[in-house]
Design a protein around this nucleic acid. Structure first.
Lengths: 201, 201
DNA sequence: ATTACAGCATGACAAATGTCATATAGGTCA
DNA sequence: TGACCTATATGACATTTGTCATGCTGTAAT
């Protein structure tokens, strides 16, 4: 019997996934978590074979949880909406055993679980393509990223300058560099692009 | 036997919901759709008792589909992530019989289905509160909304002016009015606010 | 018919934004 | 030790953005 823990903050999906898995005769859901921290606790408590994990959850994310579970012999499968290279890279670095998309057909879930248990790694094909083709690191320096985050929050140049103890000229210069590096021509496009690429946080 | 059609673009959730519903002895999933248009066709074809519908789907949305199904005697339940007043208002106007959130516990799904079949209406409580307290109409005129949409796309004043055959002065004036009405002080905040309120489209 | 009002449109002006040249501090590598 | 690079920081300048006063519709109310 494959013993499974699911971590997912949308309760409807959490319940539905549990129903789906419990239909399989060789699988059993032994715990349900609503965030990353709960998931880590449940895994330590129940010692399951597999933990299925969403990424975006309130409090600690699925990626943080996956990083903490590295080393334990519970296999981790990430199940998320987001086909972003940034998330995928980080998940691979955390040593996850599978990365599925919520867009994938539901039949793939049970087969992926069995594959992972038998030692293989399963990555949604869309992601592997993307990782090879378009995967790119965030080209912004720490300082620039800091500025962009404040900017995305709707702050004006003056407010950003105040918060970072810089002159407005300096902040405008950073923004100019950001626009240049992201190959866009105004703040709004920069924010959109940054989000698209999965570079937030 | 309650006959049900589900429309949901995330295949994983679609499959899992179907599994959840098929566990109930008095319910049966007779069709699955990946967008609003498919859902309408399937309803006309199979004449089910209930159609469960996501809002944000590629192509035609769940709200458009619900509007088209008004009058048929298939009950419509909206099942979405978004607790936005804008969506909720529009759904109520379209005469939907239920509005559930993906954050609601999965046990509520089957009980809600039985309720709407017996003629009641079921709205997630979070929404009713919000509708009474904060529900508000989009205060922008059509022209202003048009400008905001282009602006959210990252277009510059000049590009917007070109596209709408206006001078840049006029466009800037509209934007000024938009900022005023949304009570914000720059374009980025205006876009964020507009999204928050669920006023997009 | 007159008034009042809302939406649409514009240009003048002031303020914020984006670009560029420039300067310093720290790192690396030949 | 230089030569070179990168990240950080700034101010001068031109452009873009936001505000305001103003005029022109159409239409609803008196």
């Amino acid at each position: 019997m494959i013993r499974i823990i699911i971590a997912e903050d949308q309760k409807m999906l959490l319940g539905a996934l549990a129903a789906l898995i419990d239909l399989e005769e060789d699988m059993e859901v032994v715990g349900r978590a609503g965030n990353g921290e709960e998931a880590v606790n449940l895994v330590k408590l129940h010692n399951p074979d597999v933990c299925i994990m969403d990424i975006e959850m309130p409090g600690s994310s699925g990626l943080e949880a996956a990083e903490q579970l590295k080393g334990l012999d519970c296999k981790v499968i990430i199940l998320t909406t987001f086909a972003r290279a940034g998330y995928f890279d980080r998940a691979v670095k955390a040593g996850v055993d599978g990365y599925l998309l919520k867009d994938s057909p539901s039949e793939e879930l049970s087969s992926s679980i069995r594959s992972v248990v038998s030692g293989r790694r399963i990555y949604a094909s869309e992601l592997v393509d993307e990782a090879y083709n378009t995967s790119s690191e965030n080209p912004l320096t720490d300082r620039e990223s800091e500025v962009l985050v404040l900017m995305a929050d709707g702050k004006s140049t003056k407010e950003i300058a105040g918060q970072l103890f810089l002159t407005t000229g300096t902040v405008r210069n950073y923004i100019s560099a950001i626009l240049d590096k992201l190959e866009v021509s105004n703040r709004i496009e920069a924010i959109t692009r940054f989000k698209e690429k999965g570079w937030f946080k």
